[in-house]
Amino acid sequence: MTTHTQTAQNKPPGSVTGGEGLLTGPVRTVLAAVLLVLLLAAPFALYPVFLMKVLCFALFACAFNLLIGFVGLLSFGHAAFFGGAAYISAHTVKVWGVTPEIGILLGTAFAAALGMVFGLLAIRRQGIYFAMITLALAQMIFFLALQMPFTGGEDGIQAVPRGRLFGVIDLTSPLAMYYTVLAIAVLGFLIIWRTVHSPFGQVLKAIRENEPRAISLGYRTEQYKLAAFVMSAALAGLAGATKAIVFQLATLTDVSWQMSGEVVLMTLLGGMGTLFGPVVGAALVVTLQNYLAATNLPVTVVIGAIFVVCVLVFRRGIVGELTRILKGSRG
């Protein structure tokens, strides 16, 4: 850890460019490389299905964070995109017999289209009203998932075949499945990273910081917010669709409001508005759920308690606080 602190200290004060100014240049590259090697080696040390779950939720949380952390919009209906895409990919793979990558793409496209509809209806509203409209719309999707014939009601869609990626690679092999999921998650993360650090991302941050001012500079902010919303929905869908292939399952849990809440929790725990925060938050929550499930402890109570502590002690989330401490030590 001392190396980052050192680099941060040596930086000239003028070079801070908001948000992620902490890890720059070579340090960031080295760190990213180390992380990638760890992720590539991980399935040899840990249970691959668990890792894939972490990756899917990490992508989901990152997609959600794109909206709350970089545009300042709190959606409470992201389960609709995650779960909706899961149903579509599960159905297309199982019933239509498409290859998994096509199923995932169809699920993602569905989530994007749904995001467009939600966005058009909700984007003019601010704060709690925006959250409530997204929640209401997501509940409608939940209801549809419960009632429509193809979704299997309470049972969901089960026994979805993993199939062969591009018709070639057999995904029933845990390693092949893991590397596929890893590739998808890294791709999604790179898209988000690029978006945040793009001309578009600059405008999004300006809107987050002061929307009336952005309007008075001539930005039609609703269009930017809508674009970000669709993007976030699509990436949440990508995560959900992938999850459906991994677990061979799409159920009501994926579209329930608790799922929307869980992604808020992951993002806040990890640190909203930081790029890595949601990844850390997702890993933490999934790990706790997995390991606590084997004990007698009530999972929700423990996670709830952690959340309360987090809000009281480190409001910026784990990564947010670490960033602040490292920045502070620069003096």
Binding site: G19, P199, A206, E209
Partner: peptide, 30 residues
């Protein structure tokens, strides 16, 4: 009305940026 957590330079640049027409380009580097 400033953008509090953008740098001073970025504040001004956001205004200069609009006429460039790349404000929707999420695939480009900032």
């Amino acid at each position: 009305a400033v953008f509090p957590h953008l740098t001073v330079l970025e504040n001004v640049r956001v205004a200069l940026q609009r006429p460039l027409g790349n404000s929707f380009h999420f695939w480009e580097s900032e």
